[in-house]
Design a protein around this nucleic acid. Structure first.
Lengths: 160, 160
DNA sequence: ACCTTCGCGCAACATGGTTGCTTGTGCAAG
DNA sequence: CTTGCACAAGCAACCATGTTGCGCGAAGGT
């Protein structure tokens, strides 16, 4: 197959370039993972990624690839407080937060970020290398409707 | 012993009252846990609490007590992204966030909260019952100094 | 085409937390 | 004070998520 088979998205191409530039090998699993996470935005659980690759690679490999990508700042770990690691592709320079539906776990992006004040407060307390994590939780419009009608939820994981 | 043996702190007394008011039993383990978490502020890991009670009770009991207290909103779970559940006593009406040192895990309180805008944004997207979690991470002044001198850290858990 | 090295697969392990079931205890009624 | 009952504690087995060690295979440079 020619390298341009089924038009590699520009985001994916950039990702692969970032990989090579960092002196990292462009292996099958890494490409497959990058293809998924550059195509859709929502953070992906490790297990979810693994399932989406329907056994093409070992679960351990998914963990290790993501760890490697995180090291290169190509991927960011999101923590929704349920003990599951989720990852999303990092578009350099973009910063955002998430709203997560406590019932169906739908994730949407909030482009506002309001943490500067808190970071400044921490800096004035003597802290350095400051970062922050923030998540907003709620019940999405769909789940509210569904709940009113007394119908079941789409998914029933333990609520967040 | 008289009920006022070694002056129960007002916070502890209030906590016990909250327990009874909710129709919950005032058992040994629950009292012991409440005594600790009302005396000091910092969020406590489950294991930390268990150790501080040097085996007075089963670890499972600590989990279950905290789960019960969380249900009653007497205790809040804090998530620092390392997969360890930490809990702090909830003083009704108080809302705050934390700055956590990535190296020694020292925790300090930030009384500012800046999430209103984000919560409003989420509300305008149709979400209900909105809550948020936010943590600020950094390297505390002590650890910066210690690191400069090339000395070891006080504690060496995997950095956050 | 070869060689080195990095990364994958597999299996075993570690950690943090949960569940099921039995025993014991808080607490209130008698 | 005694009794009874429901709820909570204890114990053990289990589960899920993530990690480590190691040999083999393939990526990519020469």
């Amino acid at each position: 197959m020619s390298p341009s088979a089924s038009k590699p998205s520009p985001l994916l191409a950039a990702a692969l370039a970032r990989l090579s530039d960092a002196g990292q090998r462009r292996t099958g699993p890494r490409c497959a993972i990058l293809k998924i996470i550059t195509a859709e935005h929502g953070p992906f659980g490790v297990d979810e990624l693994h399932r989406r690759l329907h056994g093409e690679m070992d679960l351990v490999t998914v963990y290790r690839c993501l760890a490697a990508l995180e090291q290169l700042d190509m991927v960011r770990r999101c923590d929704f407080g349920d003990g599951i690691a989720r990852y999303e592709y990092v578009v350099p320079g973009h910063h955002h937060h998430h709203v997560i539906c406590r019932l169906c776990r739908r994730v949407e992006t909030l482009d506002v970020c309001v943490a500067e004040r808190l970071e400044r407060a921490a800096a004035s307390m003597g802290y350095a290398e400051i970062t922050h994590s923030m998540e907003v939780f709620g019940i999405c419009a769909n789940c509210q409707k569904r709940r009113q009608k007394g119908r079941g939820m789409e998914r029933h994981p333990p609520p967040l």
